[in-house]
Design a protein around this nucleic acid. Sequence first.
RNA 1: GCCCCUGUGGCGGAAUUGGUAGACGCGGCAGACUCAAAAUCUGUUGCCCGCAAGGGCGUGUUGGUUCGAGUCCGACCAGGGGCACCA
Length: 878
Amino acid sequence: MLTGASIVSQPTPAGSRAEPVRYNFRETEAKWRAVWEERGTFRATADRSKPKYYVLEMFPYPSGRIHMGHVRNYTQGDVVARYRRAKGFNVLHPMGWDAFGLPAENAAMEKKVHPRKWTYENIATMKAQLKSMGLSLDWSRELATCDPSYYRHQQKMFLDFWKAGLAYRKEAWVNWDPVDNTVLANEQVIDGKGWRTGATVERRKLAQWNLKITQFADELLERLDTMDRWPEKVRLMQANWIGKSEGARVFFELTGPGIAGGEKLEIFTTRPDTLFGASFMAISPDHPLAVRLAASDPALADFIAECRRTGTSAAEIETAEKKGYRTAVSVKHAVKPDETLPVYVANFVLMEYGTGAIFGCPGHDQRDLDFARKYGLKVIPVVLPPGEQAAVFVIRDVAYVEDGTIINSGFLNGLSVADAKRAIIRHLEEKGLGKGTVQYKLRDWLVSRQRYWGCPIPAIHCPACGVVPVPEKDLPVTLPDDVEFDAPGNPLDRHPTWKHVNCPKCGGPAQRETDTFDTFIDSSWYFDRFTSPHCETAPFDREEHEYWMPVDQYIGGVEHAILHLLYSRFWTRAMRTVQLAGRDEPFDGLFTQGMVCHETYRAPDGNWLFPEEVKRSEGGGVVRASDGAPVSVGRSEKMSKSKKNVVDPDQIIRDYGADTARWFMLSDSPPERDLEWTEAGVSGAWRFQQRLYRLLSAAIAGLPPAGSAKPAQFTDAAMALRRAAHRAAAGVGEDIQRFHFNKGVARLYELANAIEAFRLASDADRWALRETLDIFVRLIGPMTPHLGEELWQMLGGQGLLADAPWPAADPALLVDDEVTVAVQVNGKLRATLRLPKDAGKQAAEAAALAMPETQRAMAGKPPKKIVVVPNRIVNVVV
RNA sequence: GCCCCUGUGGCGGAAUUGGUAGACGCGGCAGACUCAAAAUCUGUUGCCCGCAAGGGCGUGUUGGUUCGAGUCCGACCAGGGGCACCA
C-alpha cells in the first residue's frame, strides 16, 4: 500500500542499501535493436488495403562518419515514420548512399585508396553508426548510386531523354584549370584561380551535355503555387531562380562597315514601353557580332579579351566598372525611322540571358543612366511621374523606374506603363519589328563533368557518324577499375583501352564519352528507385511506384532548396515525357531542418580547440583542460571541422545512448531553426531518460494487469490525471504531424510531472495510473524508441511497442467542465475566476462584478461597457 | 542593390481566430537527504517599489487601430538567409 506516498519515493526493502534504480541504456538499446532486426519489424511491402506513407530523409554522402546534422535529420524522420506506423499507415522509410563524387577522388590522390574501396568502407562505417541510432529503416532497400545496378537505369533514362530531345550537346564556356586539366564549377574558382591548384582559370568553350530543364520552366514555376506542404521560403527561392519576366524582343536594322544589307540586331527588354527613350545599344563581349567586328578592330579585340579576364565571382562583379566600347556600327531606331543609335560592346551584358543584346534607356534604368552619363549619351524621359510637368521634367542622377504617364513617345503618349507595353508590343508585332516574349533566368542543366568517380555518360564519338548512343544491350557502361590518380586530369581520358570502342553504327574505330554525369543526376531519382530497388528490367516496378509515390514527407537541409529539389522535379517530368511514370511532382510534403551549432573555442595561440579540450575553471571562465590556459569563447556557429566546434555522435551515443541524443535533438529548439548543442542540454535529456525509468520501475508494482475492467468512479485527482493523459495523447500526435517536436516534448514533461505528483489511494487510482502510463509510453515511443520498448515490456504490453497503435484520446476527457476566466478592468488583468464551462454572459458578468478585486479597480465608477468573451475573458470598461 | 525571414526572462523557447505573456526545459537561489560530495527530492525564480497587503513596468524602437495588441497596420533599428551586371 502506497497510500499518501509519492509513487517514486517508494521505501526500499528493509536491510538493502538504497541502490538507485539505473537504466542500463547500453544493454537495453542493443537488445531492442536486435529484436527489431530479427523480426524485420520495419520491412515494407506494398499493401493496397492500407494507406501508405512514404517518409524520406535526404540520403547522405558517404564522407566517412555521420555528423550531428545527420542525427538531427534522421531523428526527425524517424519520429514521423514511427508515428505514422502507430497511426495505422503502411510506412516506407528507406536509406541509401549518394555515393559518387569528388571527395572519393581527392582521397584517392591523397591516400592512394581506390575511390570504390574508400566509398564502400565509409558506407560500412556510417551504416553501423546509423544503426546505432535505432532508426526504423527498411535496410533491405538500401542502395548506393555508384552501384552499376543502380546507374545502369540512369544511363537508360538518359538515352530515352536524348531520344526525346531532352538531352543535347552544346558548346559552353567553362572554367578550365590548366594544371588539373579539368573543368571547375563556379564555386571552385576563387579570385580567378583554381581552388586546388591556384592556377589562373581559363575560359574555354567545350561541347557539353545539357538537359533541357528550361522546357519545363513555366510548369515548374506554376506548380509551386499548389505545393502547400512545402515551406514558403523554398517555393520563393525556386520561383526567383526560375526568374520569369515578360517583355519583348525587338529587331533593329544594323548599318555600318561590314554589315550586310538587312542584317538585324535582336534585343530583349522588359520595358518595351520605353523604346522611344532609347539612346544606345549594348551587346555582350561574347555576342557573335562583337566577335565578328573584333576581327577587323584590334582595339575591340583587346576590350573583349579584357572582359573575359574579369572573374565571375560576386565580389568582382560588384566592383567591376561598367565599361563600353563604341563599335563602328549603328542601328536604325525601330520606332523613330530617321534616327540611328550607336552600338556598344559592354562588359555588363550577359550572353547567356535573353539575346545577349539590350537597348539602353537612360531615363528609366539606373545602370543605363550611369552608362549614358559616362559616355555622354542622350537622356530622354519617356515616363512622367505623377504630379510632374512634361515641359520641365528632367532626369538628373536617379533614373525614374516607377509607373507614370508616357511622354515623348509618339502614339504611346498619355498611356500608363502597363498600357504602353501592350500597345507597343501590338505595334511591333504588326510591323514585324518584334514580338512579346517571356524570358526565364533558368538555364539548361549542364551535366558533363570531367571526373572519374561518377556515372559514365553512355555515348560514343564516331569520326564518321558523330555522337552515337550506346546500344541498350551494352548497358551499363561501367567504370574501369585500373585507374591512376597520380596525374592531373580525368583518368578515364588517359586510360589505355577503356575509351576505345567500335562505333555501334558503322563499326569503325570510335571513342567513348569520357565525361561522367553531375552527381545531382544520381539524386534526382533515388526516391523512385526505393519503391522497388531490386527491379532489374526497369528503373522501378511501375506498380510499386504507383503505390508508394509521391514521397509524403521529405526532410533535409535548406541548402538543397534549389538545385537538388528543382532537378528532382525536372527529372520526374522528364520521366513523364518518355512515359516511364505518370507523376508531375515527387515530393508532396517538404520540411527543411535547421543546422546544428556549437560554441567555438580558441587557445591563446589562436588555434581552434575541440569542445572536449576545454573545461570551466573555478572562476567561471573557460580554460584549456590540458594546461589551464585561458580560452576565448566565440559565438555559436554551424558545426564544422575547420573550427573544431564539433561533437561526435558516436561519442554521445556511447556515453548517453541513442535515445538521449534523439530526445535532445527534439526538445527545446523548433526543428526548422538552428539548434545549439550544449553539454547541459544533453545531460538534461539523459536525466529525463533515467527519471522515466525510475518512475516506471517504482510505479509498476501493485498496478492492475493490462485490460482490467474500468472502475465506475474516479476521484477528482484521478480524473485530472486521466484528462492530462488524454490531452497529451491528442496534443503530441498533433505536434508531431505539424513538426512541433519541441512542443510535443514539453507536453511529455508535463505529463511526467503529473504522473509523479499523483498520489495513489484506491484501486480506481491504480487503474487510472496504469491507463496513464500505458498512454505515456506509447507517446514517447517515436522519440525514444529503445526506452519505450523497455518500459512497454515492463508494463506488460502486447507485442512490440513499435507495432502498437497510437493511443486514442477519449473526446469526453479533452474538455473541462470548469474554465478559468480572466477578469479585466479597462483591459488590465485584476483577477481570475473559475466558472462552469459555457456559463452564460450574464452569469460571467455578475460573477466578475461581484469580485472585490474588480470593485477596487473600478474605484466606484459605474461600468460604461462590459465585454464578455465566453470561457475566456470579462473586461469591464469604466 | 533586390527579395525573404527573425527580434519575447540569465539562456533555449511556449502563447488556435487579437483575449490571463513567459508553458516546458536549462541555469540560479533556498532547503531536505549525506560525515561530505555527487545523484535525487521539495520550494522558489521577468524587472522595479514595498515588511506586507498591494502597486507599477514589461514581447527590438516608435506611432496607430481596438474594450483589449507578442499577435493587425505605418515608419525605423538590429541580426540572419537567398539572389545578384538578368536588361
